[in-house]
Design a binder for these strands. Sequence first.
DNA 1: TGTACATCAGTGAACGCGCGTTCACTGATGTAC
DNA 2: TGTACATCAGTGAACGCGCGTTCACTGATGTAC
Lengths: 220, 220
Amino acid sequence: MAGTSGKQTAAKSTARPSKTRQRDYHVGNLDQLLVEEGTRLLRKEGLHELSLRKVARSAGVSHTAAYRHYDDKNALLAAIALNGFRRLHGYQDAAIRESGSDLNLRFLNLGWVYVQFALENPEYARIMYGGAGLDFADYRELATASRRSYRELLMSVRLFQRHNLIAGGRAKQKTLAAWSIVHGLSMLLLDGQFPAPTDDAAAMEKLVKDVIVNLYFGLR
Amino acid sequence: MAGTSGKQTAAKSTARPSKTRQRDYHVGNLDQLLVEEGTRLLRKEGLHELSLRKVARSAGVSHTAAYRHYDDKNALLAAIALNGFRRLHGYQDAAIRESGSDLNLRFLNLGWVYVQFALENPEYARIMYGGAGLDFADYRELATASRRSYRELLMSVRLFQRHNLIAGGRAKQKTLAAWSIVHGLSMLLLDGQFPAPTDDAAAMEKLVKDVIVNLYFGLR
DNA sequence: TGTACATCAGTGAACGCGCGTTCACTGATGTAC
DNA sequence: TGTACATCAGTGAACGCGCGTTCACTGATGTAC
Protein backbone atom coordinates (compact mmCIF):
# COMPACT_ATOMS: atom_id res chain seq x y z
CA MET A 1 0.00 0.00 0.00
CA ALA A 2 2.23 2.82 1.17
CA GLY A 3 5.50 3.73 -0.43
CA THR A 4 5.21 2.05 -3.79
CA SER A 5 7.30 4.15 -6.09
CA GLY A 6 5.73 4.17 -9.51
CA LYS A 7 8.62 6.12 -10.96
CA GLN A 8 11.12 3.51 -9.90
CA THR A 9 9.09 0.62 -11.27
CA ALA A 10 8.64 2.34 -14.61
CA ALA A 11 12.34 3.12 -14.89
CA LYS A 12 13.11 -0.49 -14.10
CA SER A 13 10.94 -1.99 -16.78
CA THR A 14 12.39 0.19 -19.53
CA ALA A 15 16.00 0.16 -18.43
CA ARG A 16 16.48 -3.46 -17.54
CA PRO A 17 17.72 -5.47 -20.51
CA SER A 18 15.48 -8.28 -21.62
CA LYS A 19 17.12 -11.64 -21.04
CA THR A 20 16.21 -12.78 -24.55
CA ARG A 21 17.29 -10.00 -26.84
CA GLN A 22 20.83 -8.76 -27.11
CA ARG A 23 21.58 -5.87 -24.78
CA ASP A 24 22.77 -2.69 -26.41
CA TYR A 25 26.37 -1.77 -25.90
CA HIS A 26 25.31 1.29 -23.98
CA VAL A 27 22.94 0.40 -21.20
CA GLY A 28 21.53 3.84 -20.60
CA ASN A 29 20.97 4.16 -16.88
CA LEU A 30 23.56 1.70 -15.71
CA ASP A 31 23.95 3.58 -12.44
CA GLN A 32 20.30 3.00 -11.63
CA LEU A 33 20.31 -0.53 -12.97
CA LEU A 34 23.23 -1.43 -10.70
CA VAL A 35 21.33 -0.14 -7.69
CA GLU A 36 18.31 -2.20 -8.65
CA GLU A 37 20.23 -5.39 -9.29
CA GLY A 38 22.23 -4.84 -6.13
CA THR A 39 19.03 -4.49 -4.15
CA ARG A 40 17.64 -7.62 -5.73
CA LEU A 41 20.74 -9.63 -4.85
CA LEU A 42 20.77 -8.19 -1.38
CA ARG A 43 17.27 -9.45 -0.86
CA LYS A 44 17.94 -12.81 -2.43
CA GLU A 45 21.34 -13.68 -0.98
CA GLY A 46 22.04 -11.26 1.82
CA LEU A 47 24.72 -8.71 2.50
CA HIS A 48 27.46 -11.25 3.06
CA GLU A 49 27.10 -12.64 -0.42
CA LEU A 50 27.02 -9.32 -2.19
CA SER A 51 29.95 -8.33 -4.36
CA LEU A 52 30.48 -5.73 -7.04
CA ARG A 53 31.23 -8.46 -9.54
CA LYS A 54 27.97 -10.26 -8.87
CA VAL A 55 25.99 -7.07 -9.22
CA ALA A 56 27.66 -6.28 -12.54
CA ARG A 57 27.15 -9.83 -13.76
CA SER A 58 23.53 -9.65 -12.76
CA ALA A 59 23.16 -6.41 -14.69
CA GLY A 60 24.67 -8.11 -17.74
CA VAL A 61 27.72 -5.90 -17.81
CA SER A 62 31.43 -6.41 -17.30
CA HIS A 63 32.49 -6.11 -13.70
CA THR A 64 34.59 -3.05 -14.34
CA ALA A 65 31.76 -1.04 -15.83
CA ALA A 66 30.50 -0.16 -12.38
CA TYR A 67 33.51 2.09 -11.85
CA ARG A 68 32.21 4.38 -14.56
CA HIS A 69 29.38 5.29 -12.13
CA TYR A 70 30.59 4.60 -8.59
CA ASP A 71 33.93 5.29 -7.01
CA ASP A 72 34.03 1.91 -5.34
CA LYS A 73 31.92 -0.82 -3.84
CA ASN A 74 30.96 1.22 -0.80
CA ALA A 75 29.68 4.01 -3.00
CA LEU A 76 27.31 1.55 -4.64
CA LEU A 77 26.19 0.25 -1.26
CA ALA A 78 25.59 3.82 -0.16
CA ALA A 79 23.47 4.44 -3.25
CA ILE A 80 21.42 1.36 -2.42
CA ALA A 81 20.98 2.46 1.18
CA LEU A 82 20.00 5.94 0.07
CA ASN A 83 17.33 4.43 -2.13
CA GLY A 84 16.10 2.54 0.92
CA PHE A 85 15.75 5.74 2.90
CA ARG A 86 13.83 7.32 0.04
CA ARG A 87 11.41 4.44 0.02
CA LEU A 88 11.02 4.66 3.77
CA HIS A 89 10.19 8.34 3.39
CA GLY A 90 7.56 7.30 0.90
CA TYR A 91 5.99 5.00 3.46
CA GLN A 92 6.08 7.74 6.08
CA ASP A 93 4.60 10.41 3.84
CA ALA A 94 1.82 8.07 2.80
CA ALA A 95 1.07 7.22 6.42
CA ILE A 96 0.69 10.88 7.31
CA ARG A 97 -1.37 11.60 4.22
CA GLU A 98 -3.70 8.68 4.75
CA SER A 99 -4.27 9.47 8.40
CA GLY A 100 -5.85 12.83 7.56
CA SER A 101 -6.67 14.86 10.61
CA ASP A 102 -7.01 11.85 12.92
CA LEU A 103 -3.92 12.32 15.03
CA ASN A 104 -4.30 9.12 17.01
CA LEU A 105 -4.41 7.23 13.75
CA ARG A 106 -1.40 9.16 12.58
CA PHE A 107 0.70 8.05 15.52
CA LEU A 108 -0.31 4.46 14.99
CA ASN A 109 0.26 4.56 11.26
CA LEU A 110 3.63 6.27 11.47
CA GLY A 111 4.83 3.48 13.71
CA TRP A 112 3.19 0.77 11.69
CA VAL A 113 4.69 1.76 8.34
CA TYR A 114 8.16 1.83 9.86
CA VAL A 115 7.82 -1.82 10.76
CA GLN A 116 5.94 -2.59 7.58
CA PHE A 117 8.75 -1.10 5.51
CA ALA A 118 11.27 -3.30 7.29
CA LEU A 119 9.18 -6.44 6.85
CA GLU A 120 8.41 -5.79 3.21
CA ASN A 121 11.93 -4.70 2.32
CA PRO A 122 14.17 -6.79 4.55
CA GLU A 123 17.12 -6.26 2.23
CA TYR A 124 17.47 -2.66 3.36
CA ALA A 125 17.45 -3.08 7.11
CA ARG A 126 21.06 -4.18 7.45
CA ILE A 127 22.48 -1.75 4.95
CA MET A 128 20.62 1.29 6.23
CA TYR A 129 21.43 0.68 9.86
CA GLY A 130 25.13 0.10 10.17
CA GLY A 131 25.33 -3.55 9.20
CA ALA A 132 27.31 -2.85 6.04
CA GLY A 133 29.91 -0.86 7.90
CA LEU A 134 29.16 2.23 5.86
CA ASP A 135 30.42 5.34 7.56
CA PHE A 136 27.68 7.93 7.28
CA ALA A 137 30.34 10.59 7.63
CA ASP A 138 31.62 9.56 4.17
CA TYR A 139 28.17 9.73 2.65
CA ARG A 140 26.47 12.90 3.77
CA GLU A 141 23.26 12.17 1.87
CA LEU A 142 22.82 9.06 3.98
CA ALA A 143 23.11 11.02 7.20
CA THR A 144 20.68 13.58 5.82
CA ALA A 145 18.20 10.93 4.73
CA SER A 146 18.35 9.21 8.10
CA ARG A 147 17.78 12.46 9.91
CA ARG A 148 14.81 13.24 7.71
CA SER A 149 13.00 10.17 9.02
CA TYR A 150 13.82 11.20 12.54
CA ARG A 151 12.70 14.77 12.01
CA GLU A 152 9.40 13.65 10.58
CA LEU A 153 8.82 11.67 13.76
CA LEU A 154 9.95 14.54 15.97
CA MET A 155 7.63 17.00 14.30
CA SER A 156 4.73 14.63 14.72
CA VAL A 157 5.51 14.22 18.40
CA ARG A 158 5.49 17.99 18.83
CA LEU A 159 2.19 18.15 16.98
CA PHE A 160 0.71 15.54 19.28
CA GLN A 161 1.94 17.51 22.25
CA ARG A 162 0.28 20.67 20.99
CA HIS A 163 -2.98 18.74 20.82
CA ASN A 164 -2.43 17.32 24.29
CA LEU A 165 -2.40 13.78 22.96
CA ILE A 166 0.91 13.12 24.63
CA ALA A 167 2.48 14.88 27.60
CA GLY A 168 4.43 18.07 26.99
CA GLY A 169 8.17 18.56 27.20
CA ARG A 170 11.18 16.43 26.27
CA ALA A 171 10.01 15.96 22.70
CA LYS A 172 13.35 14.51 21.61
CA GLN A 173 13.40 11.92 24.31
CA LYS A 174 9.82 10.92 23.51
CA THR A 175 10.71 10.69 19.84
CA LEU A 176 13.59 8.43 20.72
CA ALA A 177 11.22 6.20 22.66
CA ALA A 178 8.89 5.93 19.68
CA TRP A 179 11.70 5.36 17.23
CA SER A 180 13.30 2.76 19.49
CA ILE A 181 10.20 0.67 19.86
CA VAL A 182 9.46 0.44 16.16
CA HIS A 183 13.11 -0.01 15.30
CA GLY A 184 13.60 -2.77 17.84
CA LEU A 185 10.37 -4.42 16.83
CA SER A 186 11.46 -4.41 13.19
CA MET A 187 14.84 -5.93 13.97
CA LEU A 188 13.51 -8.62 16.30
CA LEU A 189 10.87 -9.65 13.81
CA LEU A 190 13.29 -9.60 10.87
CA ASP A 191 15.86 -11.66 12.73
CA GLY A 192 13.20 -14.12 13.77
CA GLN A 193 14.12 -13.69 17.42
CA PHE A 194 10.51 -13.49 18.48
CA PRO A 195 8.10 -16.27 17.51
CA ALA A 196 5.67 -14.12 15.54
CA PRO A 197 2.93 -15.14 13.09
CA THR A 198 5.00 -14.03 10.09
CA ASP A 199 2.73 -15.81 7.64
CA ASP A 200 -0.44 -14.12 8.87
CA ALA A 201 -0.30 -10.51 7.72
CA ALA A 202 -3.36 -9.40 9.64
CA ALA A 203 -2.13 -10.95 12.87
CA MET A 204 1.27 -9.32 12.37
CA GLU A 205 -0.29 -5.91 11.84
CA LYS A 206 -2.37 -6.31 14.96
CA LEU A 207 0.63 -7.40 17.01
CA VAL A 208 2.73 -4.47 15.84
CA LYS A 209 -0.02 -1.96 16.43
CA ASP A 210 -0.74 -3.32 19.90
CA VAL A 211 2.91 -2.86 20.80
CA ILE A 212 2.86 0.70 19.48
CA VAL A 213 -0.26 1.44 21.49
CA ASN A 214 1.53 0.20 24.61
CA LEU A 215 4.03 3.00 24.18
CA TYR A 216 1.45 5.54 23.08
CA PHE A 217 -0.38 5.15 26.39
CA GLY A 218 2.87 5.64 28.25
CA LEU A 219 3.61 8.90 26.48
CA ARG A 220 0.37 10.54 27.53
CA MET B 1 28.59 -2.77 37.76
CA ALA B 2 26.37 -5.62 36.59
CA GLY B 3 27.56 -8.59 34.64
CA THR B 4 31.28 -8.31 35.14
CA SER B 5 32.48 -11.88 34.86
CA GLY B 6 35.45 -12.39 37.14
CA LYS B 7 35.87 -15.96 35.97
CA GLN B 8 36.35 -14.89 32.38
CA THR B 9 38.88 -12.23 33.25
CA ALA B 10 40.88 -14.63 35.38
CA ALA B 11 40.91 -17.30 32.69
CA LYS B 12 42.07 -14.70 30.20
CA SER B 13 45.02 -13.52 32.21
CA THR B 14 46.34 -17.04 32.77
CA ALA B 15 45.60 -18.48 29.36
CA ARG B 16 46.71 -15.63 27.16
CA PRO B 17 50.35 -15.99 26.18
CA SER B 18 52.57 -13.20 27.31
CA LYS B 19 53.92 -11.30 24.35
CA THR B 20 57.40 -11.43 25.79
CA ARG B 21 57.98 -15.03 26.79
CA GLN B 22 57.90 -17.94 24.40
CA ARG B 23 54.52 -19.62 24.18
CA ASP B 24 54.42 -23.32 24.98
CA TYR B 25 53.78 -25.61 22.09
CA HIS B 26 50.51 -26.64 23.63
CA VAL B 27 48.42 -23.66 24.47
CA GLY B 28 46.07 -25.32 26.91
CA ASN B 29 42.69 -23.74 26.38
CA LEU B 30 43.10 -22.70 22.79
CA ASP B 31 39.37 -23.00 22.21
CA GLN B 32 38.74 -20.40 24.90
CA LEU B 33 41.67 -18.26 23.84
CA LEU B 34 40.37 -18.11 20.28
CA VAL B 35 36.99 -16.92 21.51
CA GLU B 36 38.66 -14.23 23.57
CA GLU B 37 40.94 -13.02 20.81
CA GLY B 38 38.07 -13.16 18.34
CA THR B 39 35.99 -11.02 20.63
CA ARG B 40 38.84 -8.57 21.06
CA LEU B 41 39.30 -8.25 17.30
CA LEU B 42 35.58 -7.94 16.79
CA ARG B 43 35.54 -5.00 19.15
CA LYS B 44 38.63 -3.41 17.68
CA GLU B 45 38.05 -3.88 13.96
CA GLY B 46 34.45 -4.94 13.49
CA LEU B 47 32.74 -7.95 12.00
CA HIS B 48 33.73 -7.16 8.43
CA GLU B 49 37.41 -7.32 9.26
CA LEU B 50 37.25 -10.55 11.21
CA SER B 51 38.84 -13.67 9.74
CA LEU B 52 39.88 -17.00 11.16
CA ARG B 53 43.45 -16.32 10.17
CA LYS B 54 43.56 -13.04 12.05
CA VAL B 55 42.11 -14.61 15.16
CA ALA B 56 44.70 -17.40 15.05
CA ARG B 57 47.51 -14.94 14.43
CA SER B 58 46.30 -12.83 17.32
CA ALA B 59 46.30 -15.92 19.53
CA GLY B 60 49.89 -16.61 18.49
CA VAL B 61 49.03 -19.84 16.77
CA SER B 62 49.11 -21.15 13.21
CA HIS B 63 45.93 -20.43 11.32
CA THR B 64 45.08 -24.09 10.95
CA ALA B 65 45.17 -24.82 14.66
CA ALA B 66 41.67 -23.42 15.03
CA TYR B 67 40.27 -26.43 13.18
CA ARG B 68 41.35 -28.64 16.06
CA HIS B 69 38.64 -26.91 18.10
CA TYR B 70 36.02 -25.56 15.72
CA ASP B 71 34.53 -27.12 12.63
CA ASP B 72 34.79 -23.92 10.65
CA LYS B 73 34.74 -20.17 10.92
CA ASN B 74 31.03 -20.01 11.66
CA ALA B 75 31.44 -22.39 14.57
CA LEU B 76 33.93 -19.99 16.11
CA LEU B 77 31.60 -17.05 15.52
CA ALA B 78 28.81 -19.03 17.14
CA ALA B 79 31.01 -19.69 20.17
CA ILE B 80 31.72 -15.97 20.44
CA ALA B 81 28.04 -15.14 20.17
CA LEU B 82 27.18 -17.75 22.77
CA ASN B 83 29.65 -16.15 25.11
CA GLY B 84 27.90 -12.86 24.48
CA PHE B 85 24.56 -14.30 25.48
CA ARG B 86 26.10 -15.70 28.64
CA ARG B 87 27.42 -12.30 29.56
CA LEU B 88 24.05 -10.75 28.87
CA HIS B 89 22.47 -13.30 31.18
CA GLY B 90 24.98 -12.21 33.79
CA TYR B 91 23.84 -8.62 33.44
CA GLN B 92 20.21 -9.68 33.68
CA ASP B 93 20.70 -11.88 36.72
CA ALA B 94 22.61 -9.14 38.47
CA ALA B 95 19.86 -6.64 37.68
CA ILE B 96 17.24 -8.87 39.24
CA ARG B 97 19.41 -9.65 42.24
CA GLU B 98 20.26 -6.02 42.88
CA SER B 99 16.67 -4.87 42.60
CA GLY B 100 15.62 -7.00 45.57
CA SER B 101 11.92 -6.87 46.21
CA ASP B 102 11.40 -3.48 44.57
CA LEU B 103 9.56 -4.53 41.43
CA ASN B 104 9.42 -1.08 39.88
CA LEU B 105 13.19 -0.91 40.19
CA ARG B 106 13.43 -4.37 38.73
CA PHE B 107 11.58 -3.39 35.58
CA LEU B 108 13.76 -0.34 35.17
CA ASN B 109 16.98 -2.23 35.83
CA LEU B 110 16.15 -5.13 33.55
CA GLY B 111 15.70 -2.69 30.71
CA TRP B 112 18.69 -0.63 31.63
CA VAL B 113 21.17 -3.51 31.76
CA TYR B 114 20.05 -4.68 28.33
CA VAL B 115 21.07 -1.35 26.87
CA GLN B 116 24.09 -1.12 29.13
CA PHE B 117 25.29 -4.50 27.94
CA ALA B 118 25.04 -3.36 24.34
CA LEU B 119 26.85 -0.10 25.00
CA GLU B 120 29.62 -1.71 27.03
CA ASN B 121 30.06 -4.67 24.70
CA PRO B 122 29.33 -3.30 21.24
CA GLU B 123 31.26 -6.13 19.62
CA TYR B 124 28.49 -8.57 20.45
CA ALA B 125 25.47 -6.71 19.15
CA ARG B 126 25.96 -7.56 15.50
CA ILE B 127 27.00 -11.15 16.00
CA MET B 128 24.24 -11.99 18.47
CA TYR B 129 21.47 -10.48 16.42
CA GLY B 130 21.74 -11.79 12.91
CA GLY B 131 24.42 -9.48 11.55
CA ALA B 132 26.93 -12.29 11.06
CA GLY B 133 24.51 -14.37 9.05
CA LEU B 134 24.66 -17.18 11.58
CA ASP B 135 21.71 -19.48 11.26
CA PHE B 136 20.49 -20.20 14.76
CA ALA B 137 19.03 -23.44 13.43
CA ASP B 138 22.60 -24.69 12.97
CA TYR B 139 23.59 -23.70 16.47
CA ARG B 140 20.93 -24.81 18.88
CA GLU B 141 22.73 -23.43 21.94
CA LEU B 142 22.43 -19.96 20.42
CA ALA B 143 18.70 -20.28 19.98
CA THR B 144 18.44 -21.58 23.52
CA ALA B 145 20.54 -18.76 24.92
CA SER B 146 18.53 -16.14 23.08
CA ARG B 147 15.28 -17.61 24.34
CA ARG B 148 16.60 -17.61 27.88
CA SER B 149 16.90 -13.84 27.80
CA TYR B 150 13.40 -13.60 26.45
CA ARG B 151 11.98 -15.97 29.04
CA GLU B 152 13.59 -14.05 31.85
CA LEU B 153 11.80 -10.96 30.60
CA LEU B 154 8.52 -12.79 30.10
CA MET B 155 8.56 -14.20 33.62
CA SER B 156 9.22 -10.76 35.02
CA VAL B 157 6.30 -9.35 33.07
CA ARG B 158 4.04 -12.04 34.51
CA LEU B 159 5.34 -11.26 37.97
CA PHE B 160 4.57 -7.58 37.47
CA GLN B 161 1.09 -8.51 36.34
CA ARG B 162 0.49 -10.59 39.44
CA HIS B 163 1.40 -7.57 41.51
CA ASN B 164 -0.85 -5.32 39.44
CA LEU B 165 2.09 -3.19 38.36
CA ILE B 166 1.18 -3.66 34.73
CA ALA B 167 -2.16 -4.57 33.20
CA GLY B 168 -3.12 -8.24 32.98
CA GLY B 169 -3.30 -10.40 29.88
CA ARG B 170 -1.20 -10.67 26.73
CA ALA B 171 2.02 -11.17 28.62
CA LYS B 172 3.90 -12.20 25.48
CA GLN B 173 2.87 -9.13 23.56
CA LYS B 174 3.84 -6.90 26.47
CA THR B 175 7.17 -8.67 26.72
CA LEU B 176 7.73 -8.03 23.06
CA ALA B 177 7.02 -4.35 23.61
CA ALA B 178 9.57 -4.18 26.41
CA TRP B 179 12.15 -6.14 24.49
CA SER B 180 11.60 -4.04 21.38
CA ILE B 181 12.13 -0.74 23.07
CA VAL B 182 15.41 -1.70 24.73
CA HIS B 183 16.61 -3.54 21.66
CA GLY B 184 15.82 -0.65 19.37
CA LEU B 185 17.32 1.83 21.78
CA SER B 186 20.51 -0.21 21.93
CA MET B 187 20.83 -0.42 18.18
CA LEU B 188 20.07 3.23 17.52
CA LEU B 189 22.58 4.33 20.12
CA LEU B 190 25.24 1.89 18.95
CA ASP B 191 24.84 2.93 15.34
CA GLY B 192 24.99 6.57 16.33
CA GLN B 193 21.70 7.26 14.60
CA PHE B 194 20.45 9.35 17.46
CA PRO B 195 22.52 12.28 18.70
CA ALA B 196 22.98 11.06 22.27
CA PRO B 197 25.41 12.22 24.96
CA THR B 198 27.59 9.12 24.53
CA ASP B 199 30.44 10.61 26.51
CA ASP B 200 28.33 11.41 29.56
CA ALA B 201 27.53 8.10 31.25
CA ALA B 202 25.12 9.59 33.76
CA ALA B 203 23.17 11.46 31.10
CA MET B 204 23.02 8.31 28.97
CA GLU B 205 21.68 6.27 31.87
CA LYS B 206 19.04 8.89 32.56
CA LEU B 207 18.02 9.05 28.91
CA VAL B 208 17.70 5.29 28.65
CA LYS B 209 15.75 4.99 31.87
CA ASP B 210 13.40 7.80 30.89
CA VAL B 211 12.62 5.98 27.66
CA ILE B 212 11.97 2.76 29.55
CA VAL B 213 9.66 4.58 31.93
CA ASN B 214 7.72 5.88 28.95
CA LEU B 215 6.85 2.33 28.05
CA TYR B 216 6.36 1.23 31.63
CA PHE B 217 3.59 3.78 32.07
CA GLY B 218 1.95 2.52 28.91
CA LEU B 219 1.91 -1.04 30.13
CA ARG B 220 -0.05 -0.26 33.27
C1' DT C 1 21.82 15.19 -44.99
C1' DG C 2 26.64 13.55 -44.52
C1' DT C 3 31.09 13.46 -42.57
C1' DA C 4 34.94 14.18 -38.97
C1' DC C 5 35.94 13.93 -34.60
C1' DA C 6 35.70 14.49 -29.57
C1' DT C 7 33.60 12.39 -25.83
C1' DC C 8 31.54 8.91 -23.41
C1' DA C 9 30.55 4.16 -21.64
C1' DG C 10 31.67 0.08 -22.04
C1' DT C 11 35.45 -4.29 -22.33
C1' DG C 12 38.63 -7.83 -20.76
C1' DA C 13 43.21 -8.96 -19.28
C1' DA C 14 45.86 -8.50 -15.39
C1' DC C 15 47.34 -7.38 -10.55
C1' DG C 16 47.94 -8.78 -5.81
C1' DC C 17 45.50 -10.20 -1.86
C1' DG C 18 43.57 -12.63 1.97
C1' DC C 19 40.51 -15.94 2.57
C1' DG C 20 38.73 -20.85 4.24
C1' DT C 21 40.00 -25.28 4.14
C1' DT C 22 42.84 -29.83 3.34
C1' DC C 23 46.65 -32.53 4.16
C1' DA C 24 50.61 -35.08 5.69
C1' DC C 25 53.55 -34.02 9.20
C1' DT C 26 55.78 -33.65 14.00
C1' DG C 27 56.42 -32.30 18.62
C1' DA C 28 54.30 -32.69 23.31
C1' DT C 29 51.63 -35.10 26.64
C1' DG C 30 49.88 -38.57 29.51
C1' DT C 31 49.18 -43.38 30.61
C1' DA C 32 50.25 -48.49 31.16
C1' DC C 33 53.43 -51.35 32.88
C1' DT D 1 60.66 -43.99 39.07
C1' DG D 2 61.65 -45.02 34.11
C1' DT D 3 60.38 -46.38 29.59
C1' DA D 4 57.28 -47.42 25.35
C1' DC D 5 53.80 -45.95 22.99
C1' DA D 6 49.19 -44.20 21.77
C1' DT D 7 46.92 -40.02 21.53
C1' DC D 8 46.49 -35.34 21.15
C1' DA D 9 47.39 -30.50 19.55
C1' DG D 10 49.90 -28.13 17.06
C1' DT D 11 52.63 -26.82 12.13
C1' DG D 12 53.29 -25.05 7.50
C1' DA D 13 52.93 -25.85 2.63
C1' DA D 14 49.54 -25.96 -0.67
C1' DC D 15 44.89 -25.62 -2.99
C1' DG D 16 41.59 -22.94 -5.53
C1' DC D 17 38.70 -19.05 -5.21
C1' DG D 18 36.46 -14.67 -5.67
C1' DC D 19 37.37 -10.34 -4.56
C1' DG D 20 38.28 -5.00 -5.52
C1' DT D 21 40.68 -2.29 -8.40
C1' DT D 22 43.83 -0.58 -12.44
C1' DC D 23 44.75 -0.09 -17.07
C1' DA D 24 45.04 0.47 -21.97
C1' DC D 25 41.68 -0.45 -25.16
C1' DT D 26 37.51 0.03 -28.38
C1' DG D 27 32.91 0.48 -29.84
C1' DA D 28 28.90 3.75 -29.66
C1' DT D 29 27.08 8.29 -29.48
C1' DG D 30 26.27 12.98 -30.35
C1' DT D 31 27.71 17.40 -32.13
C1' DA D 32 29.90 20.93 -35.32
C1' DC D 33 30.15 22.17 -39.76
